[in-house]
């Protein structure tokens, strides 16, 4: 690659283990275009859930009442997964925010019979709610389990409905919903930029999760824009970058940066239980 622009453009495929065989949309469709993506620095993420609530607030996600949590029908477009390592006193909790990966090669898109989910030319995995008929095939296909089905019509007791964001549809029963990268914000910025007759500025678009994240662990960016700070960050931190479940070959639009643990022994037996002394 001659320019860093091209490098940045193909990074998504470079980090994919199957990058050689599966072209990214950047390569096949729009080499010069936008590919929205996110860099998630796991070393910054504290698991504080700020992004989760920000997303709930921005996207009119139904209230996850206790019964829904118990039935495992709670909807959180972004969720903080917590994984344990080791045992007391050397137990470690690892957090990872998991949201729709906006895969360049998305398993959900091919299986939808009605094109309710498709890939647009900005690298977004779009869900068209009104088109969705609720076969839930996409949710099965998604290895990240980030697609959520509406078993009910959501309800907000008066006057709670006042807080609903008019830019986002309230999803009815029977359809799948998921993270949209706050497409309403992207659209708004695009319209504004168009009205003002200019290009979108780097960093002008911010989804709710990245905006609220206190530690700036989530950084939204155009992966094809070599000027954007996150793209440069991902470049600089190439040694730490990986994508989730690489072996599925989904070419995710979200690049994770590995958690740094100075005490981690990365050998085979690093996770063997350590002698306790309590």
């Amino acid at each position: 690659m001659s320019s860093s622009a091209n490098e940045a453009a193909s990074r998504a495929s470079a980090v994919s283990s199957m990058g050689q065989t599966i072209p990214t949309d950047a390569e096949v469709g729009h080499p010069e275009g936008v590919r929205w993506g996110m860099v998630v620095d796991l070393d910054r993420c504290t698991g504080c859930q700020a992004c989760v609530v920000a997303c709930q607030a921005e996207n009119n996600i139904a209230l996850n009442e206790e019964q829904r949590v118990l039935e495992r029908r709670a909807k959180t477009w972004i969720r903080i997964e917590r994984y344990w390592e080791g045992e007391f006193p050397n137990a470690k909790a690892r957090f990872i925010p998991v949201l729709c990966q906006h895969c360049g090669n998305a398993p959900c898109e091919t299986v939808c019979p009605v094109w309710a989910t498709y890939h647009n030319n900005e690298g977004l995995n779009v869900q068209v709610y009104n088109r969705c008929i609720g076969t839930r095939f996409c949710a099965n296909g998604c290895p990240y389990s980030v697609r959520y089905f509406n078993f009910w019509n959501p309800e907000w007791p008066e006057p709670m409905n006042n807080q609903l964001n008019p830019d986002v549809t309230v999803r009815t029963k029977g359809i799948i919903e998921k993270c949209t990268f706050c497409i309403q914000r992207i659209n708004r910025v695009q319209v504004t930029a168009k009205t003002e007759g200019r290009e979108i500025r780097s960093g002008e678009v911010q989804p709710a999760c990245a905006q609220s994240c206190p530690t700036s662990a989530l950084v939204f960016c155009d992966l094809n824009d070599p000027e954007s700070a996150p793209a440069q960050l991902a470049e600089a931190e190439a040694g730490r970058s990986y994508t989730l479940l690489e072996h599925f070959g989904t070419d995710p639009g979200i690049i994770y940066l590995k958690k740094v643990d100075p005490h981690a022994e990365l050998e085979e037996d690093s996770h063997a239980p350590v002698e306790t002394h309590a």
Binding site: R82, V260, S270
Partner: peptide, 26 residues
Amino acid sequence: RQLPTIEVLPNARNDVEEVIVQITNE
């Protein structure tokens, strides 16, 4: 009383074969 947790299986672990949160010590 079933605990209303987001994790479904008790104590999902990262030190299994497929590590989700990848760690580096550099």
